Computed example of a mutant assay.
Amino acid sequence: MEEQTIFELIHDMDQFTNQLIIQWNKTFNEDLGVSHVLVLGHLSVNGKSRPSDIARRLGLSPPTLSYLSEKLVKRKLAVRLFDESDRRIVYLDITSNGLAILKRAMEEGVRLRRELLGTLTEEDRAQLAKIYRKLNTENLTLSSGLRQTE
Results as ranks from 00 to 15, higher is better:
E3K: 11
L9S: 11
L9V: 14
D12F: 03
D14G: 00
D14A: 09
F16Q: 07
F16H: 03
T17W: 06
L20V: 12
L20C: 14
I22E: 13
Q23L: 08
N25I: 01
K26C: 07
K26H: 12
F28P: 10
G33D: 14
V34W: 03
S35C: 02
L38Y: 09
V39T: 10
V39G: 07
L43H: 04
L43I: 06
R50K: 15
P51S: 13
R57K: 13
L58D: 01
L58S: 02
L58R: 03
L60P: 09
P62F: 02
P62L: 08
E70V: 02
E70L: 03
E70H: 06
L72Y: 04
K74A: 08
K76I: 03
K76W: 00
A78D: 02
F82W: 00
D83K: 06
E84N: 11
S85V: 12
S85F: 11
R88M: 09
V90R: 10
G98F: 02
G98M: 04
L99V: 04
K103Y: 05
A105P: 08
M106D: 11
M106S: 13
G109N: 11
V110W: 05
R111V: 10
R113T: 15
E115M: 12
E115V: 12
L116K: 14
L117V: 08
T119M: 08
K130Y: 06
I131Q: 09
N136Q: 05
N139A: 09
N139D: 04
L142F: 15
G145C: 01
G145F: 00
R147H: 05
R147I: 09
R147M: 08
